[in-house]
Design a binder for these strands. Structure first.
Lengths: 234, 234
DNA sequence: CGAACTGTTGAGAGGCTTCAAGCCTAGTGG
DNA sequence: CCACTAGGCTTGAAGCCTCTCAACAGTTCG
């Protein structure tokens, strides 16, 4: 069940903190800030869904989203999680195609929307920006290709360990070594292509082996070194 | 066992047939043709391997290559096959990283090498080219993301059917409806993340169901409609 | 406080890999 | 051009991993 909530307008935020925009000059930044629209999105909101034609990029100022694809059989594959500082939706916009993924809020988000024409202007006029953008896409392609290797040939046990490590690296730990990001078991399952039951069994096993501790959805990483080993990371 | 064969120089070929270069003007094309180096590579040759630092792109004038990654445990994951008209190696070059994949010849190849500085010049000076390049990378990213869905949640049976359909679409059929590309069972296995035995059993099953016919490594597609259905393609 | 969703556990079944052994084909060298 | 050999192909049996189904406990939120 998807709940769509009308975003509330917020004051426009400063985009200069985004890595992608670091090579822009002051004039370009202020132009960007002028042309953006910033909104607040509640938990579970769908930012865009598969098949829509997007008119620009979204920049994540705050919060966490999941990007996923739907399958024929009703299942879901999570492609990635996006957080503060990330840009989403650029692939389908640049290809001028309909989106084939859905973006949904996991943790309340503040997003800035940038129209395509603004981006196109930068692509045409700022050569550092365009090279940077190319590199961002290439980097995501590398990750995607690597993920194919993992997901194909690793066991559920390895994949769960890897997912925990990746979530740690992307979202960090709090003081008590808990993963900052809170995800449902089903979301973990959709990330690694398993089932909630499979996730639970593996997490319980990790808990018994003193690799992690569980308290509701909170996951505390106890033995990160061993977890990395189990993940069989290169 | 990898056999490395010194490439033999060939006359330089015309690059204007490559889709990526369609927006270049005559002067740019002739400059490109001037700065390229074209060589012949025998079967099994390794063009570049994981960990190398590449100085430019390779354009496939003729022949077929496989691009794959190595895993810790000695296994291989084939990322894609490249054929005439394709450009390879651009991702790591654009990211200015070491390659994390290996390119190896399946069918005798003629490749043109283009130095990075030539590409960079085009990125800086031809805005249509740079947008085009962005779109090429985005397209590959889309395919890669889609493949993650497939490979995660499909059965070997579905994946083999899908692989056959994709090979048909990319490399075509001869007069007798045989796949033009000849691959080993182990290569098919490395493509979909299975084992040679798994591939063989599935192919035999397809043969019994009159979907395909087998003659050595030649695979004849008999019932493409049904095969597509088995592949469960969207 | 209750309903709906999420998490947990167990049993069972099935698909796939692994291992082993023999056949066949393609490519090489004489 | 032919014979040989190594690598690829094929088949069978065994066992394991993981999914599915089902029932129940726990949690969250209106």
């Amino acid at each position: 069940m998807i709940i769509i909530i009308e975003p509330q307008k917020e004051v426009n935020l400063d985009l200069s903190k985004f890595h992608l925009f670091k090579d822009l000059n002051e004039k370009e930044i202020s132009q960007l800030n002028l042309e953006q629209t910033t909104s607040l999105y509640k938990k579970e909101s769908v930012i865009y869904s598969s098949g829509s034609q997007l008119k620009g990029f979204y920049c994540v100022n705050r919060g966490i989203l999941k990007l996923y694809k739907n399958r024929n059989d009703g299942k879901i594959q999570i492609i990635s999680f996006a957080k503060e500082g990330d840009i989403i939706a650029y692939r389908s916009v640049l290809s001028e195609e309909l989106t084939c993924s859905t973006a949904q809020v996991i943790e309340e988000c503040v997003l800035s929307f940038l129209p395509y024409k603004t981006i196109l202007y930068l692509i045409q006029n700022n050569w550092q920006f365009r090279l940077h953008l190319l590199q961002v896409v290439c980097e995501e392609l590398r990750e995607s290709n690597n993920y194919i290797i993992d997901i194909t040939q690793k066991s559920v046990r390895e994949l769960v360990a890897e997912a925990l490590i990746l979530l740690k690296e992307n979202f960090g730990l709090d003081n008590a070594n808990n993963l900052r990001i809170i995800v449902k078991r089903a979301e973990l399952a959709n990330l690694i292509g398993s089932t909630p039951e499979g996730i639970i069994r593996t997490l319980s096993e990790f808990k018994q082996s003193q690799l992690i501790d569980l308290q509701g959805r909170k996951i505390k990483l106890i033995n990160i070194r061993e977890l990395t080993k189990v993940a069989n990371l290169v």
